[in-house]
Design a binder for these strands. Structure first.
Lengths: 120, 120
DNA sequence: TTCACATATTCGGATTATCGAATACAATTG
DNA sequence: CAATTGTATTCGATAATCCGAATATGTGAA
């Protein structure tokens, strides 16, 4: 593999993918995709302590995945790039199809004596 | 935020996004996007110990992001869903535009006495 | 300046991820 | 069966991540 692509993927990971590696950050991004929000509103909506939200926002901000604009004493955060949500929607579609495919397997093959079928 | 979407994003994270949270896994996925590969070939190409590659492949396999088919003593791995690369390409585009925008800032504003400009 | 509110940061501590080395397992050959 | 090749797993140590609590910073109003 070309060292050039290797380096680029390392940057892609540290600058973008790594930021998606936390469920709370995913939720924050989805919230901001709907409309810009203030820190306290995000914290209230997701039922998280404000410092936790600020820490996650910092990580997203440092990678330019969200924009922050001060409005008086508050700071309004917004999604920096719509394509971020497009990418996440692609991943959601993959997940959905995967779950559907597994459900088909169960439906068509049917539970038999050998395959245990206990939920969780 | 609806508990339903919250739950779905948690699954999206644990099943997909989390798997993208390692640079070596990104490289493996990009290698497999070009063509299916055997474990040892991946290890050689990325200059990684074989157990390390197997461990990462297991993580990808458990999430159905790659397919594994045994061929004699070898196991051929392939990308399970092209949309995974589509999503990564979207993220790469975001990263590229972000870097370009920052370069523009430097070019147009020009380095001045206040803004230090040391590489790395 | 002092207060009140909104946001950001720091600091342990607990959890989790990753690694290399050694080893175990699987498949083919003789 | 033993030997060889390819792949998978286990193990202990290191390192990274995340959290809550406390605290610091920033802004506007009185």
């Amino acid at each position: 593999m070309e060292p050039q692509l290797v380096r680029e993927l390392e940057i892609l990971h540290s600058q973008v993918c790594h930021a998606l590696g936390d469920p709370k950050r995913l939720m924050i991004l989805y919230m901001l995709a709907r409309q810009p929000q203030y820190v306290n509103d995000i914290a209230a909506e997701l039922d998280l302590p404000q410092p936790t939200v600020s820490r996650h926002l910092k990580i997203l901000r440092e990678r330019s995945l969200v924009d922050a604009t001060r409005e008086g004493a508050s700071v309004l955060y917004s999604l920096a790039d719509e394509r971020l949500i497009q990418a996440l929607e692609l991943l959601r579609a993959i997940l959905r199809d995967r779950i559907l495919a597994q459900a088909e397997l169960v439906t068509h093959a049917g539970p038999d004596a050998d395959s245990v079928d206990q939920p969780d």
